[in-house]
């Protein structure tokens, strides 16, 4: 049916579009996972970096949403689930691998670019001490506005000391943009924002696609510590556990000796210090009321 329709409209539709849809349809049939990322604000000249990094792992396609939609339909994908993502410039990543492997990859995949007006600093932006390459002139007043200490040496502007011009979360001053460019400082990260993934009929939205590796690591640590705590409690007979259990048993014994006033050379310090703790507590309670003729340590 679709093929017929395409043939009928052949005069209107460019051949490359038909080829592209056909190719994409085949690729979609061969791959279980489609990840859709937004190219909004993503510099076109950095796309090749993504292609390079994913070579052999996934197929990277930048195409019109309308063409993708047709190809997806042809490939038997439930497009209604994806429609909300098919707006604006998109990149489509096709793979048979675990979609989360790619969301982790893109979380780590960071490129840098020059600052543009209105950019917010993600980390401290520093103008380093030294030669700026600028000739002394009107630009000096820009340095002044940014509160960067300078001196002029052999007609060139030198920065006196490393100067932070934007803290994380604050706007990078517009005045600083040409200076940063001249110094070759790219303070802004480019990240590919993932909109969602489609995997065998399941839709994984971006918030679920995002993996917090730190959280996983800390959950593993927590699970391990919980396991140790339980193991110690039941004296699970492996050395690493029994070490802790023995310490606990010993402290239990000392506490018992101390509270019962069971005096032996071994327990004397513990027993007497507990008794003294109580005596001092009582003496403290009497302080200011009775002159005991003693000094209560403070």
């Amino acid at each position: 049916m679709i093929k017929m329709a395409v043939e009928i409209q052949q005069k209107k539709i460019a051949k490359w579009k038909i080829d592209e849809v056909e190719e994409l349809t085949e690729e979609l049939k061969k791959n279980k996972t489609v990840i859709i990322g937004s190219l909004e604000g993503f510099p076109a000249d950095k796309l090749h970096e993504i292609r390079k990094q994913l070579r052999g792992k996934a197929i990277v396609r930048v195409t019109k949403n309308s063409l993708f939609q047709i190809a997806a339909k042809n490939a038997g994908i439930d497009v209604s689930k994806l429609e909300k993502y098919l707006i604006g410039p998109n990149i489509f990543i096709l793979t048979n691998d675990n979609p989360f492997t790619f969301s982790i990859f893109f979380e780590k995949f960071k490129l840098k670019r020059y600052a543009k007006a209105g950019d917010i600093a993600e980390e401290e932006v520093v103008i380093p001490a030294g030669d700026t390459g600028f000739s002394a002139g009107p630009v000096l007043s820009t340095f002044g506005k940014l509160k960067i200490k300078t001196r002029v040496q052999e007609g060139k502007i030198f920065v006196a000391e490393d100067t932070v011009i934007a803290k994380p979360g604050s706007k990078i001053p517009d005045d600083a943009i040409p200076i940063l460019q001249k110094l070759g400082i790219m303070p802004v990260y480019i990240k590919l924002g993932l909109k969602g993934a489609y995997y065998e009929g399941l839709l994984i939205p971006s918030n679920e696609l995002k993996i917090d590796l730190g959280q996983y690591a800390s959950n593993i640590a927590k699970a391990y510590q919980e396991s140790m705590a339980v193991a110690v409690e039941i004296a699970y007979p492996v050395p690493e556990v029994l070490k802790v259990t023995i310490g606990k048993a010993y402290r239990n014994a000392m506490a018992l000796a101390g509270e019962s006033g069971y005096l032996t050379p071994e327990t004397a310090e513990n027993v007497l210090s507990r008794a003294m703790a109580k005596a001092y507590a009582l003496a403290s309670a009497l302080e200011g009321k009775v002159d005991l003729g003693i000094n209560i340590p403070k």
Binding site: A235, P239, G247
Partner: peptide
Amino acid sequence: VRVKAVAAALKEINIEEVLKNASAMQ
């Protein structure tokens, strides 16, 4: 079995050392 396991595990531990640490800790 438990006796066996405990005895075996404790053979690998320097109990004196563990007690010294526990006491120092206290």
